[in-house]
Write a protein that binds this DNA or RNA. Structure first.
Length: 213
DNA sequence: GCATTAACCACCG
DNA sequence: CGGTGGTTAATGC
């Protein structure tokens, strides 16, 4: 295997490029994103230390489907296609690991889709943060995240200003602590299970009940 | 009603 | 100074 280093903002892997390696973050932080023909960009998820990615395109022998950008200085491990295929052909344990990885990622994206459609903005931001610490995908992630509010907005698909108010509400509830250019998660289960606190008037409670249902 | 954009200001390295 | 964070006013769905 090889190791490569990327500066903040550098493109680790680009959509459309041929895929010849299975990749993993050794340290640092990156984001996966896609762009439309018109140049509009949507960030799909964050990638932190310990996360493997790119196995889908590697298995299907197709060009990469998304871009990966470093959000801070990042080291990446690259496993050549031949090694990846040899492991797939010879190791049951390796195949089990791959299944668990794919399963965890599937549940991550299904969960994100459900939250996107069912939850209000504060809860979406909370869940987006919590998903970055998914223990299945990120075995021993530190609870400190060095990502600014603009990037959190891109990850959660919410404007930077709205992210700011959501983060401050989460901080007021003791779920996170805001820092300059980052934050620390204080209560991961609480963050993952966060739902909006509704006002005291009956109308908004009904709306809340409908959304919860 | 709520989120978005734009703009402004304060803070910090 | 530029980047980041906190806030507010105008606009749109």
């Amino acid at each position: 295997m090889q190791e490569r280093r990327f500066a903040r903002g550098a493109c680790i892997a680009g959509a459309g490029q041929p895929v010849e390696h299975w990749m993993a973050l050794i340290d640092g932080f990156a984001k996966m994103s896609v762009a439309s023909e018109g140049g509009r960009v949507s960030t799909l998820t964050g990638v932190s230390a310990g996360v493997w990615f790119g196995e889908g395109s590697l298995i299907k022998h197709e060009a990469r489907r998304y871009d990966v950008f470093a959000l801070r200085p990042t080291r990446v491990a690259l496993m050549p296609r031949r090694t990846f295929e040899w492991l797939r052909e010879t190791s049951i344990a390796f195949n089990h690991y791959l299944q668990e990885l794919l399963n965890a990622r599937l549940s991550l994206f299904i969960g994100a889709l459900a939250h996107e459609r069912l939850l209000d903005t504060d809860a979406r931001v909370a869940h987006c943060l919590a998903s970055l610490f998914n223990p299945e995908l990120y075995p021993d992630a530190p609870r400190q995240l060095q990502v600014g509010q603009i990037e959190i907005g891109l990850l959660a698909n919410v404007s930077r200003q709205r992210v700011n108010v959501a983060l401050q509400r989460l901080q007021a509830l003791g779920l996170i602590r805001l820092e300059r250019r980052g934050l620390t998660v204080l209560d991961l289960p609480g963050l993952d299970g966060f739902r909006a606190a509704y006002g005291s008037d009956p109308a908004s409670r009904d709306a809340g009940a409908a959304r919860r249902a």
